[in-house]
Design a protein around this nucleic acid. Structure first.
Length: 305
DNA sequence: TGCAGTGTTGCTTC
DNA sequence: CGAAGCAACACTGC
């Protein structure tokens, strides 16, 4: 699922492929649903406004904030896309089928039956004749626009915690953020986007494994020495995720439809019942449920503080 | 066949 | 204020 490294991979792809291109048309078949809040292109009335604002605009730089994709346009507006669980941004040649009223890739990466080749719900046609397609099997995604200068007032952005890979994110910063939920379970606090932005289920499991901290540990009980390890592990694991082009354990693909490789580097996530891969460790990976989410950890070397 | 599991976030309730 | 539980959706695997 798209977490910080996957979103970063997608954003890097966009900067290489669509920067400087103009949006010449936009199409959608999202229908009004629970998440069709007034500022979401799933709202048919809002889509008309969205279309009016973005068609004709040139794409400038694309940025990432937490798990949000921010596409800056040359007309003073920004498009925000959150992929949620199953969103995919894909660049390529797409053909419209008038019978089924759907878009499909003319040259597909893998079988056309793959989720990211189906369920295309939003298509931007670019000035170089390529298209930027957004597929979203579960229709959880959020897409809307705002005036770039108002970015600091946008709810989805202003509530976010700091980005863990920035220079400003020091050890002291991480400690201060985590202690805002001093009584919380570390796994849940790490995934709270208002505390730190960008960490989800996979990377939280991996960084806790690396830092030798049990996911149920209460934040305030974790000693400074262990928190130091967590800080290093957080940055290493996220950077490694980016280096490997993201995690395709599930169905993540980059904008060219290619898999990332971080899934082959998992030490904890979805390795239930497997022996711990830490050198010298005789433990086994266990799976428990924390706040309705699965958590994976080694029953030997991860200390429960 | 049916139902739990999958993961992200917003909303409701306590 | 914070935390828990559920809903949004659709497919996979047992």
């Amino acid at each position: 699922m798209p977490e910080l490294p996957e979103v970063e991979t997608t954003v890097a792809g966009l900067n290489a492929e669509v920067r400087g291109k103009r949006i010449v048309a936009v199409w959608t078949d999202y229908r009004s649903s629970f998440h069709a809040t007034k500022e979401n292109i799933k709202n048919p009335y809002y889509f008309a406004k969205f279309k009016q604002v973005i068609v004709g605009a040139k794409i400038l730089e694309t940025k990432r904030r937490g798990k949000n994709i921010l596409i800056n346009l040359d007309n003073g507006h920004t498009i925000l896309i959150h992929m949620k669980m199953t969103g995919h941004l894909l660049i390529g040649q797409y053909t419209f089928n008038r019978t089924t009223n759907t878009w499909y890739p003319t040259v597909a990466h893998g079988p056309l039956t793959d989720p990211f080749n189906r369920f295309v719900h939003l298509v931007f046609t670019l000035s170089n004749t390529k298209r930027l397609a957004f597929s979203d099997l579960r229709k959880f995604a959020t897409v809307y626009f705002f005036k770039t200068k108002n970015a600091s007032n946008i709810n989805d952005l202003k509530r976010l915690g700091p980005d863990p890979l920035t220079k400003e994110f020091t050890f002291a910063k991480m400690q201060e953020r985590l202690l805002r939920r001093a009584n919380g379970k570390i796994k849940q606090v790490l995934m709270n986007q208002e505390i730190i932005a960008g960490i989800g289920n996979i990377y939280s499991d991996e960084m806790l494994w690396r830092a030798s901290i049990h996911p149920l540990s209460m934040v305030k009980k974790i000693p400074p020495r262990a928190l130091r390890k967590l800080y290093a592990a957080m940055r290493e694991v996220l950077r490694k995720g980016i280096d490997f082009g993201g995690d395709s354990d599930s169905d993540y693909r980059n904008i060219h439809g290619e898999r990332g490789n971080f899934q082959s580097k998992h030490n904890a996530y979805r390795r239930t019942s497997k022996p711990c891969s830490r050198r010298g460790c005789t433990g086994t990976i266990r799976r428990i449920v924390i706040g309705g989410r699965s958590a994976h950890f080694c029953d030997q070397h991860q200390t429960h503080y």
